[in-house]
């Protein structure tokens, strides 16, 4: 594994990830997530729906970063089409913009500059996929980072909001390791095989509802 992957997935990477709960804050406010088992169900659901789609898109982006003239607008449109919720699109582009800014300083490269020129606020899978490429990671590794990102932010947020035992939650993340590996492997295959239109497009209707409810909530700790 490329060591850069550790930096890209570290929650201490100053790319603003700590401000997002991936829907966990609203799921907790509604009572749907209240303890470690319900958090596990939430994370597993997130990973195998939208997480699968973002992992595949991130892998495709990382592969495209190696081409002479990457088609960033087309890939950004593929992310848009898979993100029906405006609140989730905004959470994705906000995190994408911040990650791109950080990545350009940490792993300076023409391909990151090219992405910034094409789309100053790219979706998170674009920023992550290109950053991974710039840092020397493979598409499969980029997909693994994306899969981990799909669950780690929500898990950390739940620890803070519910006062859960952080060790129990880390145990839960460790239990998800085989799922993360499977999602990343599947994403790497999908990104290598077919056209972008056929990439996974897993949807999570409850997450869409939660995201919009959260965007309209008067009191909130996390942006999303």
């Amino acid at each position: 594994m490329n060591p850069a992957l550790l930096l890209l997935t570290d929650s201490r990477l100053p790319a603003g990830g700590h401000a997002h709960s991936g829907g966990a804050e609203r799921a907790i406010a509604s009572g749907a997530v209240r303890d470690v088992p319900s958090l596990e169900a939430f994370l597993r659901g997130r990973l195998h729906t939208t997480g699968t789609a973002t992992a595949a898109l991130t892998a495709a982006v990382c592969a495209e970063a190696a081409s002479a003239e990457p088609r960033w607008a087309a890939l950004d449109a593929e992310v848009d089409a898979r993100t029906a919720s405006p609140a989730q699109r905004e959470a994705s582009t906000t995190q994408g913009r911040l990650l791109l800014r950080v990545a350009r300083r940490v792993w300076p490269s023409p391909v990151l500059d090219g992405l910034a020129r094409a789309t100053p606020s790219p979706h998170h899978p674009l920023a992550l996929g290109v950053a991974a490429h710039a840092a020397g990671a493979t598409p499969g590794e980029a997909a693994l980072a994306a899969a981990y990102h799909a669950v780690s932010g929500a898990a950390t947020a739940a620890v803070r909001l519910l006062g859960l035992d952080p060790v129990a939650v880390h145990g839960l993340l460790a239990d998800l390791a085989p799922d993360l590996a499977a999602v990343a492997a599947q994403a790497g295959l999908a990104a290598g095989a077919a056209g972008w239109e056929a990439l996974p497009a897993g949807s999570a209707p409850a997450l869409d509802l939660i995201a919009e409810q959260h965007a309209q909530a008067a009191v909130r700790l996390f942006v999303s």
Partner: peptide, 10 residues
Amino acid sequence: ALDASPAVYG
């Protein structure tokens, strides 16, 4: 397990 996830169909 996935159907009942609070992220998917609850």
